[in-house]
Nucleic acid binder design. Structure first.
Length: 155
DNA sequence: GCCAACGTTGGC
DNA sequence: GCCAACGTTGGC
């Protein structure tokens, strides 16, 4: 079982949106970065858990946790000319982009902001989110880091 | 709105 | 394969 962090802009799809979905489940589509794609496709497994992180907002931070309920499979929005995530170079016979399905596990009792995570950086084991210039929208989280962040979130 | 960091594109 | 130009991300 692995731990992850998934970024999303709340103005596009936030934790409230996930909470309002049927079965509180949603495909995590639209990832168009190869490093992130590789993790979705090759490493994420059903039953893994991920932090739900709100980015490009005030304040950014961790707002909840989700469970991976379906492992990586081709992202259909890449084949849809109507989608903003359409990629004409993704061939359905050899899909370029992948997604997983996530289900809301729980909201944080209190949000853990990026500023707060930075204050605790020394307690985390090489947390990719805090590396300068980090732009990945999917990244692994070490188990000890996961536990500490959930403590900060009030369980 | 600014801008640093980084990824992608495309000419050569 | 190099690398400059350009686009995107995302914090501030």
């Amino acid at each position: 079982m692995n731990y992850w962090l998934l970024k999303s802009e709340p103005s596009v799809f936030g934790i409230d949106d996930l909470a309002n979905r049927p079965r509180q489940t949603e495909p995590w589509d639209g990832v168009r970065n190869y490093q992130a794609r590789n993790m979705l496709r090759d490493q994420m497994r059903r039953g893994d858990l991920a932090l739900f992180y709100h980015s490009n907002c005030t304040p950014p931070g961790v707002v909840g946790t989700v469970e991976i309920v379906r492992a990586g499979y081709p992202d259909p929005t890449a084949f849809d000319p109507e989608s903003n995530h359409y990629d004409p170079k993704s061939d359905p016979a050899k899909p370029r982009w992948y997604q997983v399905d996530v289900r809301l596990k729980r909201r944080c009792q209190r949000m853990v902001t990026l500023a707060e995570l930075r204050q605790h950086a020394a307690e985390f084991d090489d947390f990719a989110l805090l590396r300068p210039g980090n732009r990945l929208s999917v990244m692994p989280v070490a188990p000890a880091t996961w536990r500490r962040i959930l403590e900060l979130a009030g369980g």
